[in-house]
Structures are given as C-alpha cells and as structure tokens.
Design a protein around this nucleic acid. Structure first.
Length: 530
RNA sequence: GGCCCCUUCGUCUAGUGGUUAGGACACCGGCCUUUCACGCCGGUAACACGGGUUCGAGUCCCGUAGGGGUCACCA
C-alpha cells in the first residue's frame, strides 16, 4: 500500500512554525515510504481572499524544500484540492448519512441549543442534546418548517458503547460514545462543516495516515463515526503534541504573537530579524513579522535546511546524540514511534544555533548569493551590485567567518561600502580609543606616513609593516590597533585587522585615517577653546 | 466544570528494573588572541510529590499536585 499523507492549511496568509512541523512529519512519513504528500486547502469557512492568502503558505513550503505531490498549483488525480470547490462530494455524503439514519435535520434555534447547553452546565451534568427539534421524517420536518424554522444537519451519535482506536503516537484510545455531542455537519445555508469535509476528503484522496496536532484527538471519534457511516476504510491516526510557547507549555498561538516578545530569547531573535528587515524596508510589526511565522526566517536570510533540522528535533529524536540530519538522513531515520508525547516549547536560541551551524558550512558562492540580496535591497550597494563590490563582498564574507551567521548579518559590515567621508563613528569607541589615549592621535599620524609609502596592501605585507612600525615606536601592537580599527571602520569590534585593511584597500584606508585625524584635531581644538 | 493527555538539567531530549542519569542549546570559568566572534578545555544544573510492588524504581502500579488540550451552524 502506498503511504499517502496530507497537510491541510487554512488560507490565513501565514505559515505557522507549529503547523510546519506537523507538515514536516507528514512529508517525512510519505516520502520515506516512497508515497505521496498532499496539500489540501481547508477553506470551508472562507468567503475571502484565497489566492493572496495562499501564496505565502505555498512559498513557505517551497522554501523549506517540502514539495507536495498533489494540491494547489501542481494538481493531481483527485482535483480540486480546495474544500470550497468540493461541495458536491460533501452534500452527497450528507445525504448518504441522512438516508442511513446516521444524521438528522435539526430545527433547533441557536438560542434553544445554548439554553440546553447552559442548563446542563448548571446542573453539572454532561450536555446531551434532547433532540427535541430532530426531524427524521419529512412530516416532522414539515411541521418544524411551518414554524419558520430552518435546519442544520447533525450527526446522530450513538449514546452507548465505546469508540476505540489505535493512535500511532498516543497509543490505544477509548472514548464513551455518549460523551460525543450530535455535531453539526451542514449549516443552515447548505454548506458543510469541517469534520464532514475532512473525512470525505481524506477518503477521496486515499489518505492512509492522518498525522495532525493533538488538539484533533477529541475530534477523532466523530470522524470515525462519519467514516464508518460512509463505508470508508479508516486511516491510521497519529496525533502529535503541539509546539508550545517559548518558556511555557501553552500552545503556540498566532493570536498571541506580540506577547511572546516578553520572552527574552524570543525578543532577541525578533530584534535581530527586525534590524535586518528595517534596513531592507520590510514591515516589522510583530503581529505579522514574527519568529512564529516561517516567512520571518526566509526574509532575514536563514538557511531553510537549518529551520527544518531544528523543527525535526522539536518533539522527535533518533537517539541520544544525533542532532544534524541531512534530508536523506531524516528520511531514513524518521519514525512516528519516536515522537515525544509531551509538548515541546519553541526555543529561539537553539534555532539560532542550528542556523549558525548550517550557514557556516555553506560554500562561499551560496553565502555570497544570499548576502548580496541584502546589500542591494538596503541600498548599500547599487542594485544589482557591481563587480567591484561583489569581489569585496566575497572577501568580507571570507574574513567575517562565522560573524555572519545569517545572510542579513552582512549589513553589519556595511561600513566597508560607504564613502570614506560618510563613515559613521561609534561614539563610545571613538572616545575610548581615539580621544582618551594621549598617544593615539600621534601614533595614528605616524602610521599614516608608513602606510602612505607602503606599496603592498595585502594583509600579510601590512602585518609585517605594522609590526615593524610598532617595534620602531617601542610599543605593542595592542597599543595602536584599536585606534586604527576605529579610525578605518568607526567600530570597536570587527574581524582581523589586517584583513580589514586589505579589503578596504589603500585609498580607503588612507582617506579614512586622514579623515579621522582631521576629526580628532577639530575635536581637540574646540575642546581647548572651551 | 466534564472528558482526555502530559510531567528527566533553564530549554530540546536519551533512558523500556541495576547508569557516577548521557548528549545538545543556553549559562559560568579558563586557554587562545590586535578587538569581537570562532575554537579548545573545564564547570553549574534534572528524574514534580507521596505511597506501594521489588533484593533493587527515572523506568511498573495507585494516589496527589502542577501544566495542557478539548468541549461551535471555527478549522
């Protein structure tokens, strides 16, 4: 039997990190068995949008490398894959259930239903619908209709016995049928509800394994009831725990995104993303730009493989050691019986660690390609970038090493690209390294003379020259290098000094040193005037 | 509240009756060093609690507590 799994997002416009993990498990399960992964769009509720809201979701899947075999844009033998277009199947199923006496027309008003529910609550008993407005025959229906009532279709659930099934993650499940309410499957306007649509689609798409969030566990008995009523073979169920909020065990929720900023680690991740996003002109409202959403990572330059690897380990492990998985290793190693039964909270720091690890291993070419985009979009370079700058970028990426751990980080080194007279000095660093040490100005001035006549501006040659200079001055390299760094980059920290000088090149180095000396002189003059 | 589920370092987890309770992220200290990182070395840190069963319990049973999920003409 071919394994067929599915993921069924609602077109909300956002691809949620917890949802992606569920999708990943589905994808892995199908692909490792040579089966199919299907994307179905659950839009029974939606009048709205569709295409617009669907786009970021599909884009997210593509970015993550989780291709779907059937679904929107790729089609497939069971089209259409949007529930809004499958009404006929659902209505046929409802009719079948009605004919079999497994469902009925219910003429209760919303108020009457609520009243019964509240009464049950008050007397602290389980709510069991009285079926007062149930119509099983046309005469009964006619009588209710004479009262101007309209109907929904409800499941006529058993009120004795148990529903038992085996869940691949949870284990054996047993529920009293009596605790299951008569759920509505068709609205008054004739459209169908989720449970019905879900079961019909799963059967028609020949889904063999339903892997979904544990919040659906309690939906399973009624879905089994529907499936049996319709004569379908039951799929295997696997209910996986939800992904929890950072630092808590509550389910991660789209609606509470802004709240998560209270978590320190979450906020740090958000902030590092927002820093990049602002530079390239993206919206940074935490309600839509958030580490809970997949496109956040796409936008700030994460490596999709890193995100997938992190997600894989959120609630699943192969053994006591293995952390890094190639795509093939995931496919070989994944199994539902090693899914952890308790909820796992989302840990931004660990995700960042995976990202750093993955980015570091990328070949220079791919790093360059990823970083380039950010310089262009932030208008640090021309768009598209010119040849000189591209060469410079490569040198920067090499010299920066793991100081760049996501592509957007390249913007931290934008000082290499600014015009020499536009260089911005970090005021603290300037004060500490240039102004405060008495000798700094003098030494930098002397060094300028040496560099001015230095022919070879390679890092190696510069190292020799500058070390020689230090010896001649009777100072240690630490006595001048900090001032030099501030002088040419404006910053207190950065990568190797000699690499920095080489990348900047002769003209920029001399210009910048000259500029900083002028600035220093101006500052001293105005200070002594006061 | 009813029903159901979960509970090992701060976090993700390994562990299927006998382990100095292992790994990873984070954190702390040291080394390296021209800064910041990296790297290397080292360290702190966990079986929710209470009863059983057993020669022996993180592992099995019962209870308690805590956390969570779910109870729609949402999905």
């Amino acid at each position: 039997m071919t394994v067929r799994t599915r993921f069924a997002p609602s077109p909300t416009g956002y691809l949620h990190i917890g949802g992606v993990r569920t999708a990943l498990f589905n994808w892995l399960l199908a692909k490792q068995a040579g089966g199919q992964f299907i994307l179905r769009i659950d839009d029974t509720d939606a009048q709205r949008n569709q295409d617009e809201a669907l786009k970021p979701i599909l884009e997210g899947f593509r970015w993550l490398g989780m291709d779907w075999d059937e679904g929107p844009e790729v089609g497939g033998p069971h089209q259409p894959y949007c529930q809004s277009q499958r009404l006929e199947s659902y209505q046929a199923a409802v009719k079948k259930l009605l004919d079999a006496g497994l469902a009925y027309r219910d003429y209760a008003t919303a108020a009457e239903m609520t009243a019964e529910r509240e009464a049950a609550e008050k007397s602290k008993t389980d709510f069991v619908y009285s079926r007062t407005w149930m119509a099983e025959t046309d005469q009964q229906a006619a009588a209710f209709e004479a009262q101007q009532r309209s109907y929904v279709v409800r499941l006529k659930m058993p009120r004795a016995g148990k529903c038992q099934f085996k869940d691949l993650v949870v284990g054996d499940v047993s529920v009293d049928w009596a605790t299951e309410a008569d759920h509505a499957i068709q609205r008054a306007d004739g459209t169908c509800l989720y449970h019905l649509a879900n079961v019909v689609d799963d059967a028609e798409f020949e889904i063999t394994h339903v892997v979904r969030g544990i919040e659906h566990l309690s939906n399973t008995p009624r879905q089994i009831f529907i499936a049996r009523g319709l004569g379908y073979a039951l799929p295997q169920y696997a209910h996986i725990p939800y992904v929890a909020e950072p630092g808590s065990k509550k389910k991660l929720s789209k609606r509470k995104i802004a709240e998560y900023l209270n978590n320190k680690d979450f906020k740090r991740l958000y902030q590092s993303g927002a820093d990049v996003a602002e530079r390239i002109g993206l919206e940074t409202d935490p309600a839509t730009f958030s580490p809970v959403l997949v496109d956040f990572y796409q936008q700030i330059g994460f490596v999709p493989e890193a995100v997938v690897n992190y997600l894989l380990l959120l609630g699943w492990s192969l053994d006591d050691k293995t952390e890094t998985f190639s795509r093939q290793e995931m496919l070989d190693g994944f199994s539902l019986n090693r899914v952890v039964k308790s909820a796992a909270s989302f840990d931004p720091q660990k995700l960042i660690a995976f990202q750093s690890r993955y980015f570091e291993c990328l070949p220079l070419k791919r790093k360059t390609k990823l970083c380039k985009k950010y310089l262009e979009q932030a208008n640090v370079t021309a768009n598209p970038i010119d040849c000189d700058h591209l060469v410079k970028l490569k040198s920067i990426i090499e010299a920066a090493g793991d100081r760049i751990s996501m592509a957007g980080d390249v913007l931290k080194f934008d000082d290499f690209f600014v015009e020499d007279d536009q260089l911005v000095y970090d005021s603290k660093a300037w004060q500490k390294r240039m102004v405060k040490p008495e000798q700094a100005g003098f030494l930098i001035g002397e060094l300028y003379k040496v560099l001015n006549v230095e022919q070879d501006f390679s890092a190696d040659a510069l190292e020799v020259a500058i070390k020689g200079f230090c010896e001649s001055q009777g100072i240690k390299i630490g006595d001048i290098i900090h001032a030099l760094r501030v002088s040419v980059t404006g910053k207190a920290a950065g990568f190797g000094m000699f690499d920095t000088l080489e990348i900047l090149g002769r003209d920029a180095v001399l210009n910048r040193i000259g500029g900083s000396l002028d600035r220093l002189a101006d500052q001293k003059k105005s200070e002594s005037a006061v």
